[in-house]
Structure formats: C-alpha cells, structure tokens
Simulated assay, not measured.
Amino acid sequence: MSIQAFNEMRKIKRIHQAEYRPIADLITYSPLPTRSLQQIDPFIFLNHHGFQTYPKGNQGLPFGPHPHRGMETLTFILEGDIMHMDSSGHESVIGPGGVQYMTAGKGLIHAEISSKAFKQNGGDLEILQLWINLPAAKKMIAPNYIGLQKDQIPSFELDSGRVKVQQLFGQWNGVDGAFEGNIPLSMSTIYLKKDGKFEKEIPTSENIFFYIVRGKLKVNEELVNFRNLVEFENSNGIIQVEASEDAVLILGHAEPINEPMVAQGPFVMNTQQQIYEAYQDYQAGKFGTWNF
C-alpha cells in the first residue's frame, strides 16, 4: 500500500527530549519518565546507554545484582554486549543486534554486566533498556528470561531493502515476533537507510512507543532528531516515517493497562503496600538465592 493511499495521519501530541542522566562513567539518557512525561502505559521507563567507546581494561556495565518485581525488561544491544545472570539460574552473553526479554514477575535478582572479553578488550557500547508494566493479575507470575542473538530474531525488509525490521513482539508484514509477551504487544527495532520510508496503521485504542535511537526522521511531516521520544494522540490516522539520514528506531504499541501504578526503585506494583511487601520479601530471601 502506498504512502499516498492515506490522507490522514495520527496526530503528534508532543516530542520529548531524553534527559542526560549519567551512571558512573556510563553515558545515559532517559526520555521516560521525565518532568514532562510519566509513562506511555504500559511503557514506563527507558534508559539509553551510550553511544560511547570503552578502553581496554574497563570495568564494564555497573549493574550488579539487584532485585525486580511486577514488571518486565526488554534490552536492546546495538553495540557491545551484556552478560545476564539471575537467581532463577539463567545466564547468557548477548552481543550486537541481540535482545534480552526478562519477566520479573513475583521477583528475582539479576545482574547485567559486561562480558570478560569486553572488559579486557574494550569497544563500542550502545544499549537500551525498556521497562514494560504488567497488569495486576500477572504481577506475581513466575520469573522468566530469554536472550536471543541477532540471527535468532525474525526480520524483514521494506522499501526495497532501505528499511530493515527486527520483529520482537506481535505480527507485522506477516512476520511473527521472536517473543511471546505476557500482554498483547507489538515491538520492533527498525533500521533505516537515508530516504528509506515506511508507514504503519495502529489501532486508535493502542498507545505508541516511538523512540529515535540514532539519526533523524521525518515523522508525519515533522523532523525529529535522535534521543527524542514522539508522543502520539489516540486519534485516527497512520504513522508515516522517512529517514533524513541513516537511523535506528524503536517502535512499539499496546493497549493501556489502565490500572493504578506505584513504581519505587526496582519494583512496579499497584499500591504502596505492595511495594512495602516487595522490600520485605526481598530482604527475607524470597527472590531466590544469588549463586554467581
């Protein structure tokens, strides 16, 4: 279907620039949450680490053992790697182009650090982590983790190869996503060459997560730079995207959960009492044993 087939485009509500929030020597930007945007239900948090180049003999990522409950993490590795270890016994090293999907559920302890090889040899690093909320009925499900390398993730091309899509959740262009989510969800990592373009029609009831990782895009006729999140209204119309330069985009959409949310530290629950219980359970050792 051609871009000219539709006249109506989904309205852009606001463009949010990611805020600079370094963590030790790790360059970090975050567009969500900020003073201007608390969440795009069910998407509640994004950290964009890098781009930066680590020297030989570096300390790597600073995310040692820590707990989570009540949410999920989706981690995009563009450059560098992540060694994941958790109290459920999962362990893997995922490299460039790979993705990690972790369900914290009722609680686990995990670490996200750089591999021994990366710390020894150094190299480029760019990694993003997105937190996705879970509905009350699923906040206490069993924890789970899946890590996939680039060649294990289904992908397809649009616009004569100028747009390459990694399909992570849901179905697009007849391609099923790599992961089966705990909520109905569509999520893609999209790599665009200059002048590459695509369009997508998304149900009006669904909230859109649209974050430009690299490059510059024309989004519904408006130019948007990298490290910006585009917030859309829940209006009729399609999304039209054209790359003004080579770019990387994370695009997701889902029905909002529409439940009370209390996020405190590593826990995302529905009430303050549940947050208190999460801390109690963690201190009582109910999140599993750390054996690494």
Rank of each mutant, 00 (worst) to 15 (best):
S2A: 09
E8N: 06
I15C: 11
Y20T: 06
D25C: 07
L26S: 09
T28I: 05
Y29H: 14
T34Q: 14
R35T: 05
R35W: 03
L37T: 08
L37V: 12
Q38N: 10
G50F: 06
F51W: 11
F51N: 14
Q52P: 02
P55D: 13
N58F: 05
G64M: 09
P67K: 01
T75S: 03
H84M: 02
M85S: 14
H90M: 01
G97L: 05
G98S: 03
V99L: 06
M102L: 12
M102Q: 13
T103G: 10
L108I: 02
H110I: 04
H110E: 04
H110D: 04
A111W: 01
I113R: 09
S114I: 06
Q120A: 15
E126I: 07
I127F: 00
Q129S: 04
I132N: 04
A137C: 04
K138L: 15
I141T: 12
Y145M: 03
L148R: 12
Q149C: 01
Q152I: 04
F156I: 07
D159P: 05
D159M: 03
D159G: 04
S160R: 13
V163R: 09
V165S: 05
W172A: 11
W172V: 03
A178M: 07
N182H: 13
I183H: 03
S186L: 10
M187E: 07
S188N: 15
L192R: 12
K194Y: 07
D195M: 05
K200Y: 09
K200L: 12
I202A: 07
I202N: 08
T204C: 02
E206L: 08
F209Y: 14
V213A: 11
V219K: 02
E221Q: 13
V224I: 15
R227K: 13
N228L: 08
N228T: 12
E233F: 07
A243P: 06
D246A: 08
V248R: 08
L249A: 03
L249T: 04
G252Y: 01
H253V: 00
E255S: 14
P256E: 08
P260C: 00
P260W: 00
M261W: 03
V262F: 01
P266K: 01
M269C: 05
M269R: 13
Q272D: 10
Q273W: 12
Q274E: 15
I275N: 05
Y276M: 14
Y279C: 08
W290G: 01
N291I: 03
